[in-house]
Amino acid sequence: ETIMEVNLLKGPKGLGFSIAGGIGNQHIPGDNSIYITKIIEGGAAQKDGRLQIGDRLLAVNNTNLQDVRHEEAVASLKNTSDMVYLKVAKP
């Protein structure tokens, strides 16, 4: 597993990826991690090219996303300014 830091500039459609996982909404049984499950065509993440489906999202800005509820992860992604710092684990 490789840890990678990505600074992503939000586009008109936001960050351009979808997530799944978290406490109460496990993407993988027994694993509370938050995973990237979709990269949106023409979105910021696709244009940047570094994020991939299956990457594990560890942090957004200063918010640690390990062992959080799905709703908390979504809220932390929404409550960001235009430049967003992401910390991901690549499988």
Rank of each mutant, 00 (worst) to 15 (best):
N62F: 04
G24I: 11
K47Q: 08
S81C: 05
L9R: 10
P12L: 08
Q46D: 10
L77E: 01
T80M: 14
D82T: 04
K13I: 10
T63A: 11
A75N: 12
H70D: 05
R50F: 05
L9Q: 09
E5P: 04
A89P: 01
T80D: 05
N64A: 08
I36E: 00
P29V: 14
K10I: 14
T63R: 13
A44R: 08
G22D: 02
V74K: 15
G22L: 01
G11A: 08
E72V: 11
N61K: 03
N62V: 08
K10Q: 03
N7L: 05
E1Q: 03
L58T: 14
I3R: 03
G11D: 14
M83E: 08
D55Y: 13
L57N: 00
M4I: 12
T37Y: 12
A89H: 03
N7R: 11
H70C: 13
G30R: 10
R56E: 05
G54C: 04
G14W: 02
Y35T: 06
N7V: 04
D48Y: 02
V74D: 12
R56G: 02
V74S: 09
G49V: 02
D31K: 05
E71P: 09
G14V: 02
E1T: 13
A73S: 04
I23G: 06
R69E: 10
E71T: 07
K78A: 07
L65V: 09
N25T: 12
T63Y: 04
V6T: 05
K47A: 13
S76V: 13
Y85S: 12
T63N: 15
K90D: 03
G24W: 07
I36Q: 01
N64C: 09
P29K: 09
G43I: 00
G43D: 09
D55A: 11
P12S: 06
R56M: 13
I28Y: 12
R50D: 09
F17H: 01
G21N: 03
I28R: 13
I28S: 13
D82G: 09
Q52F: 05
L15I: 05
T37S: 12
Q52Y: 07
V68Q: 07
D48W: 02
L8R: 00
T63W: 05
A73M: 03
I39Q: 02
L51F: 04
K47P: 03
F17R: 00
R69L: 13
I28M: 13
S18N: 07
L77G: 01
I39P: 01
N61W: 02
E41L: 06
N64V: 08
K38I: 04
S76F: 12
Q52P: 00
I28W: 08
A20H: 07
P91I: 07
I23Q: 04
N79H: 14
A44I: 14
R56C: 14
A44C: 11
M4K: 11
D55P: 00
D55C: 12
L9D: 08
N7A: 06
A75D: 13
M83H: 15
D48M: 03
K38S: 15
V60E: 00
A20M: 10
R69G: 13
A89K: 07
A89D: 10
G42K: 08
I3D: 08
Q52G: 12
K90S: 06
N79A: 14
V84N: 15
Q66S: 11
N7D: 13
A20D: 11
G42A: 11
A59T: 11
G42C: 07
E41K: 13
Q26E: 13
I28L: 14
G42T: 07
S81T: 13
A45W: 00
N61F: 02
M4F: 11
D82S: 12
D67L: 08
M83Q: 14
L65M: 09
L86F: 07
L15Q: 02
A89Y: 12
K47L: 13
P29Y: 13
P29Q: 15
Q66M: 15
K13P: 04
R69Q: 14
G30F: 04
A89T: 06
T63L: 12
N61H: 04
D55L: 09
N7Y: 05
R69D: 06
K13Q: 07
A45G: 04
H27V: 04
L15N: 02
K10H: 03
R56W: 03
I39L: 11
N32Y: 05
F17M: 08
N79Y: 09
T80L: 14
L9A: 14
N79I: 15
T2M: 15
E5H: 08
